[in-house]
């Protein structure tokens, strides 16, 4: 019994950590650079599908299944999702700030349509199954399997965290924050805001793609339903709760919000009569939406918030235009 619980705990934490990866990607876009991405689900889906197509064994009714190692799949996910983010950014970053939001919303709708309709590549509504799982050889013992996967995902998160912290402290990260705080001053110092923003957006998109790949391989099955707009909302809630601008906050927020989400979902399915369950889960989403607005109104910097940055005297809310 306790072993089962431990296995479930490991499963839960692994899932939470895959969300933490998405959160870290969003943090570099929004937290560090102030770019609003409403299409997180699209970049996650791109990563998941690219990696799945690269690594699954050959399938007769679908293009590909190239049977490559998982690491190649992850790499492909990072590259393609990063490229997609770069293209969207190149199109919109030089325009008004909310055009990027509208464009990413469009990307989310379009990617959802593509995975649903390009059946020969994505398997359509049925998705892709038999995605190789890391440590698949341990599957006979659920506990060992779960713990090994948890360890792997934790290593990925830790590696990303260290890399991003390093990046944030590097001259590149300082320029990003300088642009976010005062674009004109940064420009006067000879930094080109558009180029830095575009790089940050592409890196964030690539990390979201990695998250999609890691999650897809962990579960072993992906379908278009996993990448609905609700995923985007969840990741936003995680980052806002944890505190945007702070990588530790992003990870903590992911675990907290995912825990809350899983717990309330379990409570709904346990205590609410079946005919009312759809209702109860829509109420769950109302709560997330209201919570997001309340945090924006009452505690705009989240639980942890951004630590005092090297640039002194910061966060005075500035009025745009």
């Amino acid at each position: 019994m306790s072993l089962d619980l431990l296995a479930y705990g490991a499963f839960f934490l692994t899932m939470a950590l895959t969300y933490a990866i998405m959160c870290l990607g969003l943090n570099i876009q929004w937290g560090q650079t102030g770019l609003f991405n409403v299409g997180i689900a699209a970049f996650v889906a791109i990563g998941a599908y690219v990696s799945a197509v690269l690594t699954t064994p050959e399938t007769p009714d679908r293009l590909g299944g190239f049977d490559l190692p998982i690491a190649v799949g992850w790499l492909g996910a990072v590259l393609v999702a990063g490229l997609a983010a770069w293209l969207v950014g190149a199109l919109t970053i030089r325009l008004r700030s909310d055009y990027l939001a509208i464009a990413t919303f469009g990307v989310a709708v379009s990617v959802q349509l593509c995975v649903l309709n390009i059946q020969p590549l994505t398997g359509g509504a049925f998705g892709i199954g038999f995605i190789p799982r890391p440590f698949g050889g341990l599957a006979a013992s659920p506990l060992a399997f779960s713990l090994a996967n948890l360890a792997l995902t934790a290593v990925v998160v830790l590696g990303l965290y260290l890399a991003l912290e390093h990046l944030a402290k590097s001259p590149w990260g300082r320029v990003l924050r300088a642009i976010r705080e005062d674009e004109i001053a940064a420009q006067a110092l000879g930094k080109r805001p558009i180029r830095f923003r575009l790089q940050a957006f592409a890196i964030g998109g690539a990390i979201m793609g990695l998250a999609g790949a890691v999650q897809g391989h962990f579960i072993g099955f992906i379908a278009p339903d996993n990448y609905l707009p609700i995923l985007t909302f969840q990741v936003w809630a995680m980052l806002i709760v944890g505190g945007s601008g702070n990588n530790r906050g992003a990870i903590l927020g992911a675990i907290l919000v995912w825990g809350l989400w899983a717990l309330t979902a379990a409570a709904v399915s346990a205590f609410v009569p079946p005919e009312q369950q759809a209702r109860a889960s829509s109420f769950q989403i109302v709560a997330i939406g209201v919570g997001l607005c309340l945090i924006l109104l009452l505690r705009p910097r989240g639980i942890i918030g951004e630590g005092r940055s090297p640039i002194a005297g910061r966060i005075k809310p500035k009025s745009e235009e």
């Binding site: 609003f36 700030s97 939406g289 919570g291 235009e321």
Partner: peptide, 17 residues
Amino acid sequence: GSAVIILVMASFGASLA
């Protein structure tokens, strides 16, 4: 005096709710 993008985000939350 919130930035434009905070308003966009708030509208996103409001739409969800």
